[in-house]
Design a protein around this nucleic acid. Structure first.
Lengths: 337, 337
DNA sequence: AATTCTGATGGAATCGTTTCCATGAGCAGT
DNA sequence: ACTGCTCATGGAAACGATTCCATCAGAATT
């Protein structure tokens, strides 16, 4: 039924054909020293046999499987998909495979995934963290090198752990500046009652919003949502009904933006006439909406790419990389009526 | 600098602690036969030492690394992201890691990726194939079990290879029915001059369109595009300018749908007044468009899930699985003016 | 000429698991 | 009591690479 399952050609075959020892073959192939003549004979035999070193053997010996693991909350979210694409594209240039896991923004699932990563002896992880310090500290101690992307862990009860987590490099979009720019743009248009829809875990953005609003802040206009479409819609719809006096809203991500557009349409709130909308993250459909959505664009692909670069350069661990956001003005904001 | 790098606990440690041989530990842990008393002692030691078998050792021994590889053209495309999500969710229940590669719809990159898969001794692949039979036959001969998703390979010059490729299971959306339903819907509204925007590689859908149109078919209204945003836009814009007499258009995927919406807006073609639009694939933003887009929905997540199920059940290889599509009528189609 | 040094080379150990095989104990059937 | 049978069990081989270490030849130094 199945194929005759031809035996793989191993390093031994190459050694035999070239008339040298396996050690020499290994050295030649991994750039060690060898005489020109030997090198040629080995290379010749290798190509002739179409030899490809088995990653399995290498991995076992080196006690670590190559490759990069990537943990994202939701791969169907365009932002994380672009982030993943960035990781993939950098990893490709290193010829490293990428294993992807989705956490659903759930610390428990995340812990579970990290566990199976360790089982696989993966030692390079890029994560959009959902869990807190308590969850990541053991992983670090287990020897894997982690880079955070898009978020970093914030809550951290035990004092000893803070240090180890500060050592974790992170690649972030400049949330603070992004939020500030958006808020300033809206206040510049005359808006005073500005809502903020944020997902749990978007601590940085929420904090930045509070700061940027200053004395205009109305705590009742800051509504949290869980990481699901339903929860996002409920948050948006609830806010619009509870406080029909708001004239502008900023959403912490594109799912909440989608929810806001839908809820506004449902409640017959016109954008931008009745409500100005700024959404975090410039997804392709932002331009297709009518009106096209004004957004705070994040370099999602770059975030992924840079994170992958960082996780590959194990040696020197640079500080956090902060990438700029950009306010892209389209048609979803108008002056306060 | 880095952690003290504590040695991993191995099966040997467990054997020692339980006072048995390593073979016995292995048997107990993988469900072999053992006396009740021994089993308990081993299990006890294993939990006490927090032992997790190293996937590396196992993989080398079994000559295959576990896990599933997934090859998609573009992970930022919502359709493939949902497909990937389905694979991920099935794989999780088997506790199998998933390695993702993007092919960019380029046979060369695809071949490259398959090569590195073999290097990793991956033997389970789910692929949205870009290359033809010549490219996949060697991979099959090398012993990996492949499941195609969304597409299957069609062109196949050598007669001997046809058979082996027919043996590859595939999980597909019912393109033919989907296209037929859409075309019937449009003709039912009175449309006669219907355009079709398709990407290269969407052979099945193109063929189905030709069949469904019957004698209404105008070959000039069938325009191919390459797999890029620019090419998609050029195709849509070109069609609309060249043939202002068309009253309806069907797009072969969501990127072309996006391009059609944009091009129509740019050329001041109103939807649905001047042009009715049906798009393949129900992406979330289809509902956000105005008017909301009428679409042929595909069960992307299911396709991925089923493909993963198939690739896990190595034994019996079922025939092709065909999943239904569904026409979701929203607001982008109107009667012919 | 004797010595030291350098660089190439191959044998063998090693990584952690699974699995083959031999051993021995216990038990039932004759 | 002897044979045959079924189990549980542990030792050891195997997987395929890397790398330590010893060896050896030839060149350079004394």
């Amino acid at each position: 039924m199945s194929s005759p399952a031809q035996r793989r050609t191993t390093i031994k075959d190459v050694a035999e054909m070239a008339g040298v020892g396996v050690a020499t073959v290994s050295r030649v192939l991994s750039g060690g020293s060898a005489s020109a003549e030997t090198r040629e004979r080995v290379l010749d035999a290798a190509t002739k046999l179409d030899y490809r070193p088995s990653a399995l053997g290498r991995n076992l010996r080196q006690q670590r499987s190559g490759g990069i693991a990537l943990l994202v909350p939701d791969i169907t979210d365009n932002f994380y998909a672009r982030l993943a694409d960035g990781v993939l594209s950098c990893a490709r240039s290193y010829r490293e495979p990428v294993t992807i896991g989705v956490t659903g923004d759930d610390p428990e699932q995340e812990a579970d995934l990290v566990g199976s990563l360790l089982e696989q002896s993966m030692d390079r992880v890029i994560a959009v963290p959902s869990g807190d310090g308590e969850m990541w500290a053991p992983a670090l101690r287990a020897g894997l090198s982690v880079v955070f992307a898009d978020r970093r862990v914030w809550r951290d009860p035990a004092p000893g752990q803070q240090r180890v987590l500060d050592e974790v490099p992170a690649v972030l979009a400049d949330d603070r500046a992004g939020v500030r720019t958006a808020v300033e743009y809206l206040t510049g248009l005359g808006h005073r009652k500005i809502g903020f829809l944020a997902r749990h875990g978007q601590t940085q953005r929420t904090r930045a919003f509070r700061t940027a609003m200053g004395e205009l802040l109305d705590e009742e206009l800051v509504v949290p949502a869980r990481a699901s479409r339903d929860s996002a819609y409920a948050a948006a719809s609830g806010l619009f009904q509870r406080r029909p006096d708001i004239t502008a809203v900023l959403t912490g991500d594109n799912m909440l933006g989608e929810a806001a557009v839908l809820a506004a349409r449902e409640l017959d709130v016109r954008i931008p006439r009745d409500l100005s909308l700024v959404m975090f993250d410039d997804v392709p459909w932002a331009e297709l909406c009518s009106p096209p959505l004004t957004v705070v664009a994040q370099p999602a692909q770059d975030i992924g790419y840079r994170a992958a670069e960082l996780v590959m350069r194990q040696g020197r661990r640079p500080k956090t990389v902060m990438l700029p956001t950009q306010l892209i003005i389209r048609g979803s904001c108008g002056p306060r009526r």
